[in-house]
């Protein structure tokens, strides 16, 4: 088995590790926090804040 065959296996292995990391963290996040918190991001939040400052 030469180095390139080893690299092929290493690439599969690393892909699986990155994939697993993402999936496990995704699961943990979705079960720890409520959707209300996770999906609270609003477009234009900064603009609204600067507007607020201008008024004061």
């Amino acid at each position: 088995m030469d180095i390139w065959t080893l690299l092929e296996y290493a690439a599969w292995g690393l892909s699986a590790i990155f994939g697993l990391y993402i999936i496990i963290d995704w699961f943990k996040t979705d079960t720890t926090y409520s959707d209300e918190v996770l999906m609270s991001s609003r477009e234009g939040a900064l603009e609204a804040m600067t507007e607020e400052q201008h008024k004061h």
């Binding site: 918190v37 996770l38 609270s40 991001s41 609003r42 939040a45 900064l46 609204a48 804040m49 507007e51 607020e52």
Partner: peptide, 10 residues
């Protein structure tokens, strides 16, 4: 209005 407790949490 804006971020903080009333608007965006994250």
């Amino acid at each position: 209005d804006g971020m903080g407790p009333k608007g965006t949490k994250i």
